[in-house]
Amino acid sequence: MKEFKGKVAVVTGGANGIGHALAQEAAKREMKVVIADIDKEGLDRVESEFKGLNADFMTVYMDVTEYSDMEMLAKKTIDKYGQVDILFNNAGVVVPGSIWELPLNDIDYIMQSNLYSILYGLKVFVPIMEKQDTDCHIVNTASVAGLLSTAGMPTYHMTKFGNIGLSESINYQLQEKGSKIKMSVFCPGFIQTDLHHCDDRRPEKFKIDWEDPYYQSEEYKNGLKRAHHVITTGIPIDSVGMSVFQAIEDEQFYILTHPQYLPIIGMRVKNVLDMKNPDVNFFK
């Protein structure tokens, strides 16, 4: 896709962080933008901002962990704009901590927010795009954490590895049928967003039980400190939107923002092929 003016972009998690940057870039390119989020205050801020930009946009309050909400998002988009040309399947969360310490509620929260939401977006929007029979593009936001693994956040790695595998497989299926839908998977490293505040926007069904021992533990407190540090010291978000749109223009599937991780990704693949065991000392 080379031309964006007048086309329609849908962005989940569009009120904050990466989603907000993608929505801004879409508006700069004179697209019609549908900004979906569970953050009502964030959507109010976006309303004010995008009106000031004289953008053609719509905000939708929704929960990406509910399939019916994804269907509602699609219906609202088609009712208002009649088509969808780019889907930024972007919303996601992070939950650090050992798998044996984390409450099951937290595991369900990250699984449904990071993996099921991507699946829901594909299931709902691919048929719409196929029916249009026009050039379309889907960008699934994953993470470099889906291409390499560390000890700090196993549930996050689990969902992001799953996201990349899902994206690759769906992309093969679309190629097999000669679809006009192109795909990308966005695999950033740490970016200066507010991802470490995602718990402030948890759906009620995943509400934290502060009586659970995990939330009194040093592991939980240290996880919060690590998340705050790595995100606030990440790369600036300014160029993210432009980089992703350039990848769409180039029909580039893998979109990476941090070249310093490429040798680590390469070493992981080499270790797999050489049948070497993972060694935690590699990170020391």
Score class of each variant (00 low, 15 high):
residue 3 E to F: 07
residue 3 E to W: 05
residue 7 K to Y: 07
residue 9 A to Q: 03
residue 10 V to L: 15
residue 11 V to Q: 01
residue 15 A to Y: 00
residue 21 A to D: 09
residue 21 A to S: 15
residue 24 Q to L: 13
residue 24 Q to S: 12
residue 25 E to T: 14
residue 26 A to E: 10
residue 27 A to M: 06
residue 30 E to S: 13
residue 34 V to T: 04
residue 34 V to H: 07
residue 37 D to P: 03
residue 41 E to Q: 15
residue 41 E to R: 12
residue 45 R to T: 10
residue 46 V to Y: 02
residue 50 F to L: 13
residue 50 F to H: 10
residue 53 L to T: 02
residue 55 A to G: 13
residue 57 F to D: 02
residue 57 F to L: 06
residue 57 F to Q: 01
residue 60 V to F: 01
residue 61 Y to V: 01
residue 64 V to W: 01
residue 65 T to S: 15
residue 66 E to I: 14
residue 68 S to A: 15
residue 74 A to L: 09
residue 75 K to M: 09
residue 76 K to A: 12
residue 76 K to Q: 15
residue 78 I to T: 07
residue 84 V to H: 07
residue 84 V to P: 10
residue 86 I to H: 08
residue 86 I to A: 11
residue 92 G to Q: 05
residue 93 V to F: 11
residue 96 P to A: 09
residue 103 P to V: 01
residue 112 Q to S: 15
residue 117 S to Q: 10
residue 118 I to K: 12
residue 129 M to S: 08
residue 133 D to T: 09
residue 133 D to Y: 09
residue 133 D to L: 10
residue 135 D to N: 13
residue 136 C to S: 15
residue 137 H to G: 04
residue 139 V to R: 03
residue 145 A to G: 14
residue 145 A to R: 02
residue 146 G to E: 06
residue 149 S to D: 01
residue 152 G to E: 09
residue 156 Y to H: 13
residue 163 N to V: 11
residue 163 N to C: 14
residue 174 L to V: 02
residue 174 L to H: 04
residue 176 E to Q: 13
residue 178 G to T: 11
residue 186 F to H: 07
residue 186 F to V: 01
residue 195 L to W: 01
residue 197 H to Q: 14
residue 198 C to K: 00
residue 200 D to P: 00
residue 205 K to L: 02
residue 205 K to G: 05
residue 209 D to A: 02
residue 210 W to H: 14
residue 211 E to M: 06
residue 212 D to L: 05
residue 216 Q to F: 02
residue 218 E to W: 00
residue 218 E to C: 02
residue 219 E to Y: 00
residue 219 E to D: 11
residue 220 Y to D: 02
residue 221 K to A: 15
residue 224 L to N: 11
residue 225 K to R: 13
residue 226 R to D: 04
residue 228 H to N: 15
residue 232 T to Y: 04
residue 233 T to H: 15
residue 235 I to A: 14
residue 236 P to K: 06
residue 238 D to H: 12
residue 244 V to M: 11
residue 244 V to N: 08
residue 247 A to N: 13
residue 252 Q to G: 04
residue 255 I to D: 05
residue 259 P to G: 12
residue 260 Q to V: 02
residue 265 I to S: 09
residue 269 V to R: 11
residue 271 N to I: 01
residue 275 M to Y: 10
residue 278 P to E: 10
residue 280 V to K: 10
residue 282 F to A: 13
residue 284 K to V: 05
